[in-house]
Design a protein around this nucleic acid. Structure first.
Length: 809
RNA sequence: GCCGGUGUGCUGGAAUCGGUAGACGGGGCGGACUCAAAAUCCGUUGCCAGCAAUGGCGUGUGGGUUCGAGUCCCACCACCGGCACCA
């Protein structure tokens, strides 16, 4: 073919031009109440950090922008909003270090983020932008908190909590990762503190059950289910020589005959009560003190040897054997799960086995199948009960319900479900968060602010510095703290802790539906129209944080009639991380962070969008490659070169028609399954095809429509140059004709005894016999078949023929 | 330990149902254009043997099912993510 000189296009001018046009025309405005079907696409709104946008951000944003743009072309009224999750520690820390008000820091960061997001040409409806730190927004965060309080789902409780030594702040369970702070990586220790808690546990079962009704990718569902950690078992009552009953939870009631000792958490309440009876009280007290000092991380370190102290003077009675068995305190029993005490069955639980070995306690086999002298036998799929009275001979699966029935009949226990999920620690001892709208009155106790006093605004303080005493910086503002009780008018004090960062993000998707409403969180009209999010993409790291929290809040709002659906998101997908060049995580300390501004300056936004989608499987992590970006720029230059000069023919050209139909099909399907990389590969192949057979104006028209969700600026400019009507992004999504996606002739692989030997070309949908005949007629095949006979042939239509041959007798 | 995921050329990654492994990019090599370089264009590029035609090998390892296995089954290995004394 003739050699072509590629003219590089002026992306800088083109991108600015179309971004201004879209903004001026409000091209992407979502219209509440519009008669078109609605579609709500959501991305996780960013935390506007001081570092600005990072190349990780555009991956999910571009993906959902492609979906949103395709939906509009398909005729939907699309809501695709953006906002800022702006409360939080990094801003506050920056403010402290640089002596700036966090409000100012936030404003500056938001401004920077906004210009960066606009630079990438996303089709957000900017008029619906929200900011969680805006009092008009957090008024409603506080309002929801008050509803939770009024419905008994928020309570204050003195309890051991996770305390981050660096942030000087408590953390929720979900925020502690491998014993360190999820945010800063510092050590987390246990502290007794009085904290506001949200009863997410009350929703544990519904949070599991309703996963069946939503279209979330499987790994998200699995991770949430595991985190909630439901287990079914039984509560069993053990009498003790002290007169009190001890209640335990077990998932293996079938092994009750094998319970040879009891173990309770060092914090267990009965220990205090039994103190006068304990012969070794000092030893017990010492153990308790030592356990209290340890961090959760130290306590739960796996490899460490089990420790414990036997309570001398009190023992328990095994209700089925009648045997008196010793009671230990040990820190391998968690105070916060089940009843804080367990029955120990060394024969069939590896932890109990280890403990029993160390303390010389009896190990009784009650399920046959293993060798309990060597290790605990824990398989409950198979195994038959022995040494177990009325259970003898039963398989485990039958013994469990039998034992539960027995316990219920005797009033000694019942079936019980437990969850690993804990209530949500909701207070933070920091400044930059939503104030908790409650006051404490000596006479009335905790009193909620009347709703007409919301928002309770954050006061300005002299110092944002967190304190080691665990008091919020707000506590020093005595003018603000001292107030009057809304109930009795007497003196009262405000709560000085603030809400965690997860508060504002637990409901933000609702505010986008009606962002400027000062009377309600979201109007009935708006919520009835937009209903819920249709497709939400976000990071896996939020699966047991934001995603779980927001499902909980939404269920609560559903229960009180604010929203019409029990689930906030119909569909949830997740993207992989963008790694640095070498495959390491991108981080400032490694010095491998790629700034999107530099890429846009050098190659343009369309190239960045295309590359970030082409980089690899959307769901998997992918390393950045500075050389590979060029490939996408080259592609766009080739597109420009092909389409910026006049073309003729408004119909598809004969030479390209089939390729175009195939591309429409492939690109459309791949977008839906988020296989953006292969969708782009299909567009590249089509362009390669166009370089072989010159495209008509009609060919290019369809191509530009397909390209426009990925590279919207260049598509728009070429659309205009070609003189097509309207904007590319407002065209109907191209349709394909299945019949035209198939070629007239097919290459058929010819195998002999399963090995590829030749390739033949036959008309599409040829009869099997014709294919076999053509294969045998092939020169190479004929040579191989010489002296052999054909025993069998297998034909896969339009793909392959396999000839089974053997030597002639 | 438990739960998920992944393993394919030099490299990022493709490959509905089991049906021509390596699409589409990057990089390399050779050539054209150029005083030269960049850019661009053309060709080539899984490995081994061979001048070639061609043959053999090849999707983490070892088995199996099948006319046919990257794909299914069994047993392993390595790496990544989540949970982690939850009774």
């Amino acid at each position: 073919m003739e050699s072509v000189i590629i003219v590089k296009y002026d992306f800088c001018r083109i991108e600015r031009k179309w971004q201004e046009r879209w903004e001026k025309d409000k091209t992407f405005a979502a219209i509440t109440g519009d008669s078109r079907p609605k579609y709500y696409c959501l991305v996780e709104f960013p935390y506007p950090s001081g570092e600005g946008l990072h190349v990780g951000h555009p991956r999910p944003y571009t993906a959902m922008d492609i979906i949103a743009r395709k939906r509009r072309m398909e005729g939907y009224n699309v809501l695709f909003p953006i906002g800022y999750d702006a409360f939080g520690l990094p801003t506050e820390n920056y403010a402290i270090n640089n002596h700036m008000h966090p409000r100012k820091v936030t404003e500056r960061n938001i401004e920077r983020f906004t210009s960066q997001l606009k630079m990438l040409g996303y089709s957000f409806d900017w008029d619906r932008c929200v900011d969680t730190t805006d009092p008009k927004y957090y008024k409603w965060t506080q309002w929801i908190f008050l509803q939770l309080y009024k419905h008994g789902l928020a309570y204050k409780s003195q309890m051991p909590v996770n305390w981050c030594t660096s942030c000087k702040c408590v953390l929720a369970n979900e925020e502690v990762v491998n014993g360190v702070c999820e945010r800063c990586g510092s050590e987390v220790v246990r502290r007794e503190k009085s904290q506001w808690m949200l009863k997410i546990t009350e929703y544990a079962q519904r949070l599991i059950d309703d996963l069946d009704d939503v279209d979330f990718i499987e790994r998200v569902k699995i991770q949430q289910r595991n985190w909630i950690g439901r287990s079914i078992g039984a509560e069993v009552l053990f009498s003790t020589t002290a007169g009190d009953n001890m209640t335990v939870f077990t998932t293996r009631p079938d092994t009750l005959f094998g319970a040879t000792y009891m173990a309770m958490a060092p914090e267990h309440k009965l220990i205090g009560k039994w103190a006068p009876l304990l012969e070794n009280l000092n030893e017990v007290r010492e153990y308790q003190a030592a356990a209290a000092k340890k961090s959760d991380f130290e306590r739960t370190e796996i490899q460490k040897e089990k420790t414990g102290v036997m309570l001398k003077g009190v023992s328990a009675v095994n209700p089925v054997t009648g045997n008196e068995i010793p009671i230990f305190i040990s820190d391998y029993v968690l105070a916060s799960y089940g009843t804080g005490a367990i029955m120990s069955v060394p024969g069939h639980d590896s932890r109990d086995w280890e403990f029993a070995k160390k303390f010389g306690l009896p190990i009784v086999e009650v399920v046959a199948g293993g060798d309990v002298t060597k290790e605990a036998y824990t398989d409950f799929e198979k195994g038959v009960m022995v040494n177990s009275g009325f259970l003898n001979g039963l398989p485990v699966q039958e013994a469990i319900p039998r034992m539960i029935r027995w316990l219920e009949d005797k009033g000694l226990g019942k079936e019980q479900v437990n969850y690993k999920l804990r209530d949500w620690v909701f207070s933070r001892q920091r400044y930059w968060g939503e104030p908790i709208p409650l006051v404490f009155c000596e006479k009335c106790g905790w009193v909620p602010l009347p709703e007409d006093q919301l928002p309770l605004e954050l006061p300005d303080v002299d110092s944002y510095e967190p304190t080691d005493t665990g008091e919020s910086p707000l506590s020093k503002m005595s003018d603000w703290v001292n107030t009057t009780c809304p109930a009795c008018g007497g003196p009262a004090k405000r709560e000085t802790d603030t809400m965690p960062q997860w508060a504002g993000s637990s409901w933000y998707f609702l505010r986008y539906m009606d962002p400027h409403n000062d009377d309600v969180l979201v109007s009935k009209e708006a919520i009835d129209y937009w209903e819920r999010v249709d497709w939400y993409n976000g990071g896996m790291e939020h699966t047991t944080l934001h995603l779980l929290y927001s499902r909980f809040w939404h269920k609560f709002l559903y229960d009180i009639g604010v929203v019409p659906t029990p689930e906030p998101y119909a569909k949830r997908t997740s993207h992989g991380m963008i790694l640095g060049e070498g495959g390491d995580k991108m981080s400032k300390s490694r010095g491998n962070v790629v700034n999107p501004n530099e890429i846009v300056e050098e190659f343009g936004a369309d190239t960045l969008r295309l590359y970030i989608m082409f980089i690899g499987d959307f769901e998997k992590a992918a390393p950045w490659s500075s050389t590979a970006v060029k490939g996408c720029k080259r592609f766009l230059d080739r597109v420009w070169n092909l389409a910026e000069s006049p073309l003729i023919g408004d119909d598809y050209s004969a030479a390209n028609e089939s390729a175009i139909h195939r591309a429409i099909k492939k690109v459309g399907e791949d977008i839906e399954s988020m296989k953006f990389n292969t969708a782009i590969a299909a567009l590249m192949s089509l362009v390669n095809h166009f370089y072989d057979s010159k495209p008509s104006r009609g060919d290019i028209k369809t191509f530009l429509a397909l390209l426009s969700p990925f590279a919207p600026h260049i598509a728009e400019e070429l659309w205009e140059i070609q003189g097509f009507e309207g904007m590319a992004c407002q065209q109907p999504w191209p349709e394909y004709d299945e019949a035209k996606t198939v070629e007239a002739e097919k290459e058929i692989a010819v195998q002999v005894n399963g090995k590829l030997r030749s390739v033949i070309v036959v008309p599409v949908d040829s009869e099997d016999s014709a294919v076999v005949a053509a294969a045998c007629a092939d020169e190479k095949i004929a040579r191989i078949m010489e002296g052999k006979e054909l025993v069998k042939s297998i034909v896969v239509k339009n793909k392959l023929v396999n000839l089974i041959i053997r030597p002639k007798n």
